[in-house]
Design a protein around this nucleic acid. Structure first.
Lengths: 358, 358
DNA sequence: AATTCCTGTCAAATCGGTTTGACAAATGTA
DNA sequence: TACATTTGTCAAACCGATTTGACAGGAATT
């Protein structure tokens, strides 16, 4: 008697579930006339199940449109089969463009291939309390975390402390055991500058970024190294370290072009800045590339359709993203041999804005 | 005796977990000296728990850095507290720009506020087998699904059949019980055209999209309606229905501008096309807006920084996204009163490319 | 015929929580 | 003092899977 209400509850629960039309493994087992574990093993192929039973179970599963409940499987298996993608502190508002492409192209393709889900974590904000991705780690909501951009070391440590691996994309965080994947900014700037030098330019303007953070420092370093290696002396008057936006680049490069001994070529460390430089050249009545050569860096979509199309150093965001994703997968699988920093090389895309010295 | 091995297993399992440094509710209860359900209720506040016990449990939880296991909670509660974001068939490769902004700004802000996770589903591809989001629905991996763009009705039906609500963003799918949120393309085109008419233009060129899909039809309809309402006769020679890309717009608008009685204004249904029109104007030696007024539609980031800055009809993608997210949340909460289609109004942004008739 | 070895299936335990209902202790009422 | 109420805690059931180990029954071996 005591079991009757329980039975009844169970029955009504089942009915309710059927109405919501989600079939559980129990339903499959029942339809196939076997027990629940047998059904499980028949579908997963872990034990000695006879061919006829297996077929019966598979047919029942198909007929009921059975799909294993994700939460139940995760709980039992201890893995969530998903990773968090975290936009770093430097990501403007929502995801910045670089990140967007890297993540959704490169990262996405790798994770999709192996069936790992990607959770978009809320973008980081400077805050004293732990960002959501730390909680995700502690709740074992994800198996791994991919942070793109700037992130505080203590939060990375908190996530690692929960036993969840972290990979950092497009940034370096010192003092944490999280591998990083970065662009070779130094090499890219070197390549761009070298290209201009090879064309015969010696007065080369530099539209760079503030050197108080890595990107600015590295690109400036690459630029300087290329000049040094070529035996060309640097002229501080031709170097502008300014905010990364087209308007600032427009104004500042306009000043460079107004100099008595103006540069015959300009390297801008971002394509956005290069667009500003192109506008400044137009405003100064200079034609590209015959009067002024311009090289950008990034290879944004627009670069191919400017007039003339922009010569630039392509940052291979998809490769960066895919590399980071693969490293994270290896860490999740238990490997502990990841290199601390992986640098992705750039690619010079020669289009129409560069030519021989006038 | 029979229980001894079980006890031992339990103990080693606990030890292993502690080594991986994830503490469960059982650990918290033990440290607080209460039973497991008491600990649960103390933390969730569902039952009459004395203040001292509650404090003891809370302290223990804090000391152990306890975070409830996400999978366990989901399994028990039957909700995953997460939604899938699905890039539709028309999303180019990865997410197209419109979608990207709408989703990550508007959609994201709403879901973040209520603590709902966003899963990025793999982009849809034409295929005979069910796309991943259907499986997610059947596995109850998500509580709701937000599809952005084109999607086959049968897959939407499959997801709905699993009892998971679906909202469609930026597209209309007939014959399914999924609410849609779309831009008011007709009204936007009307507004843009009306703006030009108000400035005194009567020969207005139309750079539109193919009318065999909704966006093209609707924008053309809005354009035509504005002319009709103003009593201006349409001239088929001034209307170009072409692919949505800057180069096609450049070429085609160049032809319009070469006509003997060329238009004094052009409405391009996308900003990308408007950029092409601006280039064509420059190539034809026409100055903007004195010789030619131009209106675009979308308000892409670049629109504010062209020379002169582009007058355009802003598609409020963030509002679209937020609206879709809120509708989905209501459906998840069990409400069944959603309007089939929600249209989001546009906003005319008057910048520098429009002026009175020359 | 007795013994050993497979084979195929299933009962029970487990993952980590939440929730219901029972029960004991403390308090209030008659 | 006897009884009704309230209060605080916990045992047990449950969510939906996976996995271990036990147990029949049939085949192979001695």
């Amino acid at each position: 008697m005591a079991r009757v209400p329980a039975r009844k509850d169970k029955a009504t629960a089942r009915l309710r579930r059927r109405l919501r039309s989600a079939s559980s493994l129990r339903d499959v087992a029942q339809m196939a006339g076997v027990s629940l574990p047998t059904a499980s093993q028949a579908l997963n192929g872990r034990a000695r199940i006879s061919a006829v039973t297996r077929k019966r179970v598979r047919d029942a599963a198909r007929r009921l449109r059975y799909t294993p409940n994700a939460a139940a499987r995760r709980l039992k298996l201890g893995r969530s089969n998903s990773v968090a993608i975290v936009p770093g502190l430097n990501m403007t508002g929502i995801f910045s463009d670089l990140f967007y492409r890297a993540v959704l192209a490169g990262v996405g393709s790798v994770f999709e291939e192996v069936g790992v889900r990607m959770l978009i974590a809320p973008p980081l904000r400077p805050a004293s309390s732990a960002p959501p991705f730390v909680e995700m780690a502690q709740a074992r909501e994800v198996d791994g975390i991919l942070v793109a951009g700037v992130v505080e070391a203590r939060w990375v440590r908190a996530a690692l402390g929960a036993g969840i691996p972290v990979v950092i994309l497009d940034n370096l965080v010192s003092g944490v055991a999280a591998p990083a994947v970065v662009n070779d900014n130094t090499g890219g700037a070197y390549t761009a500058t070298r290209h201009l030098l090879d064309l015969g330019h010696t007065r080369i303007g530099f539209i760079g970024a503030a050197v108080d953070y890595p990107f600015g420092r590295e690109t400036h370093g690459g630029f300087a190294a290329a000049l040094r290696d070529a035996g060309v002396e640097r002229d501080p008057a031709l170097e502008a370290l300014i905010p990364v936006d087209p308007d600032a680049a427009f104004r500042r490069s306009g000043e460079l072009l107004a100099l008595a001994d103006r540069p015959s070529a300009i390297f801008a460390v971002t394509d956005k800045q290069a667009l500003g430089v192109m506008r400044a050249a137009g405003a100064a009545g200079l034609s590209i590339p015959s009067d002024l050569s311009i090289v950008g860096m990034d290879d944004i979509e627009l670069a191919a359709t400017t007039d003339p199309p922009l010569t630039t150093v392509r940052i291979r965001k998809d490769v960066m993203g895919a590399t980071a994703a693969r490293i994270l997968l290896r860490l999740i699988a238990g490997e502990r041999t990841a290199r601390p920093v992986t640098t992705v090389a750039n690619e010079l895309i020669i289009r129409g804005t560069t030519g021989g010295r006038p």
